[in-house]
Design a protein around this nucleic acid. Structure first.
Lengths: 377, 377
DNA sequence: ATTGATTTGTTCATTTTCTGAACTTATCGT
DNA sequence: ACGATAAGTTCAGAAAATGAACAAATCAAT
């Protein structure tokens, strides 16, 4: 267990990259003497190490950074079958991967993970020793202790204490998290959002997910439901949604919805990329579908910006790129629906991701608990 | 200046009400010995005092609470002319009030405040000695130091360092804040939201304001614009708004908009109350206007709930009550547009407020800075 | 090359803060 | 009246942070 000043230090380095002891001391508001001690301890623990030496006037400063091999984490994504399972270092680099058959039974999943572990760690005895946590990403609601799945439609779960079950079978400290929230944490720890205090991730895929970071911390909401933009009403009196309402964003802008609309429009497209191709070839139906979906997603994101004024929006997508008609419409709809005074003030970035990224997100939940500590609301 | 443990203690008491030293020790995670010392210091400072004695098995416990007369604050609301100016104690009780003529010149405002101060404090030499801060609430954007008004349409300001100007003229530590955000802080410190960690205040009046508390702290957003729901697009391609967009919530659901719609509908109503009366008498136009406005506001609040999953929504209103057609429609629209799973899970409270409440909100900003410290993001 | 200026990082005695354990105080239940 | 129980205080000692002096490593100017 790390002390609170150690965690503070790790947090600053994780946000700002390598820093010298003197800068860190100023940044944490402690004396150089104290800083010296904290750094010594963390270096002894193998979590921190000295990297570059920076020359200037006076004695050169030695930058301290996370030691990539200071700790390792395992992450599993239960979003697809087979479930990707990765081994990640403290920099979020994936150093090994495996596939695990998915199940809807928590016990079976836990056993599967336990069986797969040796494979993942094969030939890396040093890594096994430093394995410091395991994370699981899933679609659904997770409690604030990141231990229990409160509800998951996809897995058919209700109050499943998955973390405990996995920990029993594997002996490794385990945390679970909602997929979009895990993705946000990994972008904060390892990705593009490292130095952004307030941002939201919107994951655009079969479904639409979203998660917020506020004041440098994941914000889960009062019932763990913060970020559920998929079911905000975007087309009043629109199509009915599986959630029971009508006109949810999910019924218009998810890839699932787009595919369904294509089918209903008698298009033969089976993917967004194909639909984009049809649209650029001038197919009016395809254009209309992409326009409708893009406007809806853009409007929802504009609301997000108006409501929360984040420092960045990160849109992740699984398919194609975000430069086609759909992406353009999304961007336009965002700009058109935020206060003109604010237009362009909130960077909107896009990032293509694959299945392993979800597993890395899961691993980052474990890494976060190791480095920064539990995410107390 | 208070220490961080002292502030922590004050925060807990402000959230949970009077508590015994033993409970506080557990709550702050310090030993009874440490707690004893912190309490002694704060009592000596006159900020804390012993109140009720609670009898149970063993030695009775003595509850500690904020000493109402431990510190006093002045608050001014620049939302109306004349500007209400109040003197508040540590419990948020208004113990004196005055009116001040409003101006658009910051220097004139500051001079006006300085002139009014003696009147407000007349015959209370003890209070004057314990005057610990001054707050100003205004419509517009305020920087995160709560010192400068970045922009205010109402006052015609751009980058006005109001806090500094007022401090120079009065000699009192001064903070400024956006109206809705000030209101949220006062509800957190003194009002109905004391023990709620995450909540949003929606102020329904001539305009519509909103502010979020997240993890027990005011969340200002990356540009101080968090909570700007007034300009979220609620009726795509709706009426054009003074902000430059179309169909903003402000163009449909603010009292200003409602009055304008009444006028356009040839109704003679000059207030929401009158419109409600017309509606209950069966006037179709009145009913339609209230329905449209209520649905819009309800939908926006539903979005808020979906996006941020707050523990409470507090709607404040200036006129009439919230039990008429308008309020009913708002509530229905909220319920109809949140995930059915969540419906009814987020308490929606309403509260009627008057002009002095805005001034008390302003005072609470000063109180917050005194008790809890600056609102670091 | 030498010297002085400059800045980083360490050391250590000292101060500050926090704690555990014993103790006092005040009540309840029998 | 007396033991049980729990709150709050006291105080010596532990733990954590600090200031000041110092050592180390460089640059810049001579």
């Amino acid at each position: 267990m790390l002390t609170s000043s150690q965690r503070q230090l790790l947090r600053v380095i994780s946000e700002s990259g390598p820093l010298s002891r003197t800068v860190l001391a100023a940044s944490l508001g402690v004396s150089k003497a104290t800083m010296s001690g904290i750094a010594r301890d963390l270096i002894a623990l193998g979590i921190l190490h000295e990297t570059e030496t920076v020359y200037g006037q006076g004695r050169p400063s030695i930058l301290l950074d996370l030691h990539p091999e200071g700790a390792f984490f395992v992450g599993i994504s239960l979003l697809e079958d087979p479930a990707p399972m990765v081994l990640s270092d403290l920099n979020g680099k994936i150093i090994a991967r495996e596939n695990m058959p998915l199940s809807r039974d928590a016990e079976v999943i836990a056993s599967g993970i336990a069986e797969m572990l040796p494979k993942l760690l094969a030939g890396r005895p040093d890594v096994a020793k430093k394995l410091s946590g395991l994370g699981v990403a899933l679609s659904g609601f997770v409690d604030e202790k990141q231990a229990n799945c409160v509800q998951s439609t996809l897995l058919g779960w209700q109050d499943v204490p998955l973390a405990k079950i996995v920990r029993q079978k594997t002996g490794i400290e385990t945390f679970i998290e909602n997929d979009a929230k895990a993705l946000a944490v990994s972008e904060k720890l390892f990705g593009i959002a490292r130095d952004v205090k307030n941002f939201s991730v919107v994951s655009f895929g079969e479904g639409i997910g979203c998660a917020h970071f506020i004041r440098g911390k994941l914000y889960r909401g009062n019932h763990g439901g913060a970020g559920e933009i998929a079911h905000c009403t975007i087309e009043p009196n629109g199509a009915s949604c599986r959630c029971g309402k009508r006109g949810c964003l999910d019924t218009v802008a998810s890839i699932k919805a787009i595919k369904e609309m294509s089918k209903a429009g008698s298009l033969s497209c089976t993917s967004l990329t194909e639909l984009e191709q049809e649209a650029s070839a001038g197919n009016v139906v395809a254009i209309r579908i992409l326009h409708r979906a893009g406007s809806a997603l853009g409007l929802a994101i504009a609301h997000l910006i108006q409501f929360n004024d984040p420092g960045m929006i990160l849109i992740t997508h699984v398919e194609g790129n975000f430069d086609g008609l759909f992406g353009t419409v999304v961007r336009q709809a965002i700009e058109a629906n935020v206060l003109p005074r604010y237009a362009g003030q909130t960077p909107v970035r896009t990032q293509r991701i694959d299945g392993d990224i979800w597993a890395r997100g899961a691993a980052s939940i474990a890494a976060h608990n190791f480095l920064i500590g539990p995410n107390r609301n």
